[in-house]
Nucleic acid binder design. Sequence first.
DNA 1: CAGGCTCCAAATGTATACGATTTGATGAGC
DNA 2: GCTCATCAAATCGTATACATTTGGAGCCTG
Lengths: 229, 229
Amino acid sequence: MTISLKSKSVTADEIALQLTEAIHTHRLQPGAKLREDEVCDIFQVSRTIVRQSLHSLQHKGLVTILRNKGAFVAKPTLKEAREVFEARSLIEPAMARAAALRATPQDVAFLEEHMKAEKDALDREEVGEALRLSGDFHVQIVRIADHALIETLLAQLVARSALIIALYWRRRNALSDSSSHRGLVNALRDRDADGAEEIMKGHLLDLLMQLDLRDGASGPVSLKDALRK
Amino acid sequence: MTISLKSKSVTADEIALQLTEAIHTHRLQPGAKLREDEVCDIFQVSRTIVRQSLHSLQHKGLVTILRNKGAFVAKPTLKEAREVFEARSLIEPAMARAAALRATPQDVAFLEEHMKAEKDALDREEVGEALRLSGDFHVQIVRIADHALIETLLAQLVARSALIIALYWRRRNALSDSSSHRGLVNALRDRDADGAEEIMKGHLLDLLMQLDLRDGASGPVSLKDALRK
DNA sequence: CAGGCTCCAAATGTATACGATTTGATGAGC
DNA sequence: GCTCATCAAATCGTATACATTTGGAGCCTG
């Protein structure tokens, strides 16, 4: 979190992070164009850096780059959306099980704090922050399971999930149903591997079931406005 | 293989492909340094393009880039190696099941051809090509399962697997044990979902069991020699 | 002679300049 | 009035020049 004071040193990662946040909080909607020069002006860096950011986000699946056309916030199809949650369903239950077998009291305390922060964000009606924390909860489970590769991998899937929620979610407030997270923390505390696995499995199935076919298209957004806070 | 004759039109992807092949065939060993200028000379392109390639390979997990230090062929730790195969064990059995339910006669014929090509490569003692085909077989299963996201994902894991084999394999020729692949194709042909899933599970477990703790370090290799064919 | 310091060459990081492609508008022709 | 060719502005792709960092050679010093 050390943000350099020298204004010149805005790194590609920082730009990617801010763009990611804008996407997660729906200030940047799927399909929005990300013109290189515009991003340059906003962050006061050269196109070299901006291009690094955009390519990085493309790898994470948040941005689609079309040669000679430009970069756009990714707009997952319904099939891609299902695939993301199917992939998570393959991975996360096993991670929940492993986490239950490894979780220390410190880990459980950390998750408790995490859930509290999520609830607070919801109470303050900071939906974007709540969404981010809700996704990060799943990543933290994998961290406790001590599986660095899948942690990286799931972070990407979670990032895409936020995008998908923007497009295909039936009822936005459904994500505030934190009973599954509560149950998971309890299972981890009790070293209940089977329980943790089952809860995670059901939780992800719930999420998948709430995907909807409605057309998620909506008007474009000014990039500059989206990044202003 | 095809080194473009028009010196101007070597793309970043082509360079990444050739480097990947050199890594897979162990002509470039884990830890080898990839100096930007050197790669520039070899392919006659600017550093811009080379940097794109190296970053792309970093994302795939084949190359590690250290800031202000340079790019190196990745050298997975034993833990990372195990994680790769654990991740595959979570994903691939389910894909084998899905593939068994969807495989057309054309798909089965394609896999038969694929296995034959692999056997031919082994007969010709083209170990690198055989290794590549053996890995690609797994990716093709996912393609048949019609899961684009996991197909991309597994392709990366398979690429890393080749690296791991270079470092941690107990007996190189073990990969020539193609009976599991044979069994998989049969299961797909017979629409035997349970069988396909079980075979894949066992196959990956076999692979994991053959990882060895021996130190995989070895001397550096000349980059130019590694790319000459 | 060991230790460390300065300075320089080499390699990477970043910005800018130039060229190629796309796009949207304009206007001629049907 | 509509269609299509043409062109200019906008935008992206690539190469190159400049800045920064690193690692080590060589020298000084204790």
